[in-house]
């Protein structure tokens, strides 16, 4: 199992928002939902190489900023074309006031 990796302080991601997180040559999108719970997915849309951190969080969904494809960022499921392939999701948690992901 991968180790937990520190992302940022909890306050650095607003509720219902997303940031980019780069780690050892890979890029991820780290989210907080409306309750503040953190989530993590691959950073790039599965349709084209566009970073989801520039997209819009709507409830449980992230909308790609280029073509408006949508994913459920909690499950990774592709919900709206042109996104057809699911995102990979990763565990995320809050520990001592910081968001950590297991990637």
């Amino acid at each position: 199992m991968s180790e937990w990796v520190d992302v940022c302080a909890i306050g650095e991601i607003e509720e219902e928002d997303v940031i980019r997180f780069d780690h050892v040559g890979r890029t991820f999108a780290v989210y907080r939902d409306e309750d503040g719970t953190p989530f993590c997915t691959d950073g790039l849309c599965t349709h084209e190489q566009v970073h989801l951190a520039d997209g819009l969080v709507l409830d449980d969904e992230i909308e790609c900023p280029k073509h408006n494809g949508r994913f459920n960022y909690k499950t990774g499921a592709a919900l709206r074309t042109p996104a057809c392939v699911a995102l990979t999701t990763y565990p995320a948690r809050i520990a001592e006031g910081r968001i950590q992901v297991q990637v």
């Binding site: 084209e48 280029k66 042109p82």
Partner: peptide, 10 residues
């Protein structure tokens, strides 16, 4: 055309 327009934006 949904796919066509996605390409137009790409």
């Amino acid at each position: 055309w949904r796919w066509s327009h996605a390409r137009h934006h790409t």
